[in-house]
Simulated scan of single mutants.
Amino acid sequence: MSAFWIILHYYGIMSAEYERKEIFLMSNPYQNITNYLHFLSRRYNVKINIKDFFGFIPINKELDEALRPFLAHTNPFCMYIKSETQSYHTCLRMIRKMYSKFENGDYEYFFGVCHAGLMEYVIPIRYEQDLLGSINAGFFQSDPETTQARIRSACLGSRLLQFETAYRLYEQYITAPDIAIEDLLPQLNLLAEYLSHTYGILCKTHPTSTNIFRYHNSNEDMILSHAVKYIQQNSSQRITVNELADFCHCSTSYLSRIFKKRTSVNINTYINKVRIELSKNHLMNSTNSIAEIAITTGFDDPNYYSRVFTKMIGISPTEFRRRFKTFT
């Protein structure tokens, strides 16, 4: 067994305690890579982001599912900056610039700064002659004056973005990693090797483009990541497809098509899945009634909640609580 498989398995076991709140991954063969990414993020305060230039992630549903939390930066500062349409598209253009930089030069990695002042190291993911994507790790910080100037520039001329709000979010949520880059880079290279090796296996059984030039639509990854994050953060509230599409800067038809393509379910079903997973924690760890749990997790009708739960989980909420409750 090669070294990176052994190390990823080790980190998968060591970081399993972090993943109790993650959903849909219990039977996923790529669970360890999800655990490893969360381990790096939480142990060293590193924000990890996977950019897909080639379309190698969606060729396998389980890999897509495992990497979904890492396809875009969804911290409150980034989400606020990208709430402005122009700023959102500036972020997308930067992905294309990353691709061009690696495509036009033989870089082992480079250090980049986004238009809103966030700094990260970018490591390529290559398979033979193909540039698959990149691993972005941040956020490293410069002097406060330079950071403020970039944030102010990003907010300039926008009717939605306010510098004071943006900078407050930056100070609250953006902190430097607790690891030196020379110690982090070997782990990121390990991750790049793993993803390259995984693609090498998958491409033998999954159809891929034979075009000489291929560039994946990164907007699709951004939309999916933002939509999933919005659903997770607002699952206890009423969520409409229209407001979700507005949040993701796209049409409702495009958003619905992406969800069906990448998750194999429609948006409302996905919302219900998130709510059901949250309700399982309540059933196991609280003494609240079934009706109270239904309302807390976003279901207006407790009877409808019970029907959806039974259909998705295979047993009723009452039976689930009886089997798995942690309280006496």
Rank of each mutant, 00 (worst) to 15 (best):
S286W: 08
D52H: 04
K280T: 07
M1E: 09
F140S: 07
I151D: 04
I290G: 00
G105W: 12
T34N: 15
R321I: 11
C91R: 02
I290N: 07
S158A: 08
N217L: 10
N268H: 10
E145Y: 06
G12W: 14
F327E: 04
E19Q: 09
A245Q: 07
D52L: 02
Q187G: 01
I223Q: 06
E22M: 07
D301R: 08
N75Y: 09
S236Q: 12
G12D: 12
I125A: 03
L40W: 03
L224S: 03
I201A: 13
G105V: 01
N234E: 11
T165M: 04
E164I: 08
H216V: 00
S256A: 12
I201T: 13
K204D: 08
I123R: 06
L160V: 09
N45Y: 07
V46T: 09
Y199N: 04
G112R: 13
H226K: 10
A116D: 06
I239S: 05
Q141F: 03
T252H: 01
F54V: 04
T210A: 00
N189S: 02
Y170A: 05
K97L: 11
L156M: 10
I81W: 04
L191H: 01
E164A: 11
T147S: 04
P29N: 08
I231L: 01
F163V: 04
I7N: 13
I267S: 05
T210V: 08
I258V: 13
P302H: 09
E65R: 14
C248M: 00
R68A: 14
M119C: 15
A16H: 14
F54E: 09
S134Y: 01
P29W: 06
D221G: 00
R126F: 08
G138C: 11
G117W: 07
S289P: 06
F259N: 02
R323P: 01
T146H: 13
N272I: 00
R20K: 14
N104E: 14
I151H: 03
G298V: 06
F110K: 05
V228M: 10
A227F: 07
T205C: 00
L184T: 04
D300P: 00
Y167E: 03
